[in-house]
Simulated assay, not measured.
Amino acid sequence: MTHDIPPTTTATTATATGTTTTTATTATATGRGGDGPGLIDVHAHFVTDSYVRRARAAGHERPDGVPAWPSWSARAHLELMDRSGIDTAVLSVSSPGVHFGDAAAARALAREVNEDGARVVRDHPGRFGLFASLPLPDVDGALAEIAYAFDELDADGVILETNTHGVYLGDARLEPVFAELGRRQAVVFLHPTSPVCWEHSALGRPRPMVEFIFDTARTVTDLLFAGTLDRHPGLKVVVPHCGGALPVLADRINGFMKLFMPAGTPAPDAVAQLRRLYFDLAGPAFPRQVPALLNLADPGHLLYGSDYCWTPAPAAEAHAASFDTAPDPVEGTDWRTLTTSNARTLLPRLAR
Rank of each mutant, 00 (worst) to 15 (best):
residue 337 T to C: 01
residue 320 A to T: 09
residue 180 E to Y: 08
residue 111 R to I: 05
residue 35 D to I: 13
residue 88 T to Y: 09
residue 59 G to Y: 05
residue 150 F to L: 10
residue 224 L to P: 08
residue 133 S to D: 07
residue 302 L to P: 06
residue 59 G to A: 11
residue 104 A to F: 00
residue 204 G to M: 05
residue 220 V to N: 09
residue 337 T to N: 12
residue 293 L to T: 11
residue 58 A to D: 04
residue 32 R to G: 13
residue 260 F to G: 03
residue 113 V to H: 07
residue 281 L to V: 02
residue 263 A to V: 15
residue 97 G to C: 04
residue 334 D to V: 11
residue 200 H to P: 01
residue 155 A to L: 08
residue 303 L to E: 12
residue 85 G to E: 03
residue 51 Y to V: 03
residue 113 V to S: 03
residue 285 A to V: 15
residue 111 R to S: 15
residue 91 L to I: 08
residue 149 A to N: 07
residue 50 S to I: 11
residue 38 G to Q: 10
residue 23 T to A: 15
residue 57 A to Y: 07
residue 332 G to H: 06
residue 213 I to W: 05
residue 331 E to T: 15
residue 65 G to Y: 00
residue 348 P to S: 13
residue 103 A to S: 01
residue 244 G to R: 04
residue 49 D to H: 14
residue 280 D to A: 08
residue 45 H to F: 08
residue 84 S to L: 13
residue 65 G to R: 07
residue 228 T to D: 05
residue 27 A to P: 15
residue 338 L to I: 06
residue 210 V to W: 13
residue 240 P to C: 03
residue 220 V to K: 02
residue 103 A to Q: 06
residue 235 L to W: 02
residue 275 R to Q: 13
residue 302 L to G: 09
residue 342 N to L: 06
residue 48 T to N: 04
residue 214 F to Y: 14
residue 296 L to G: 02
residue 11 A to G: 01
residue 338 L to D: 10
residue 193 T to Q: 10
residue 122 R to Y: 12
residue 122 R to G: 09
residue 170 G to D: 05
residue 54 R to H: 10
residue 32 R to I: 12
residue 125 P to F: 11
residue 66 V to Q: 09
residue 245 A to W: 13
residue 268 P to A: 06
residue 309 C to D: 07
residue 63 P to D: 13
residue 66 V to A: 01
residue 265 T to M: 14
residue 246 L to R: 08
residue 321 A to M: 01
residue 269 D to I: 03
residue 334 D to K: 07
residue 191 H to Y: 01
residue 114 N to Y: 05
residue 16 A to H: 13
residue 171 D to R: 02
residue 136 L to W: 04
residue 236 K to I: 10
residue 302 L to D: 07
residue 160 L to R: 03
residue 317 E to R: 14
residue 263 A to W: 11
residue 113 V to C: 10
residue 43 H to A: 08
residue 38 G to K: 00
residue 218 R to T: 14
residue 127 R to W: 02
residue 182 G to M: 10
residue 147 A to S: 12
residue 288 R to V: 08
residue 299 P to T: 11
residue 151 D to M: 13
residue 58 A to W: 02
residue 93 V to N: 02
residue 186 A to L: 01
residue 222 D to C: 11
residue 142 A to D: 04
residue 176 P to L: 07
residue 190 L to V: 11
residue 321 A to N: 05
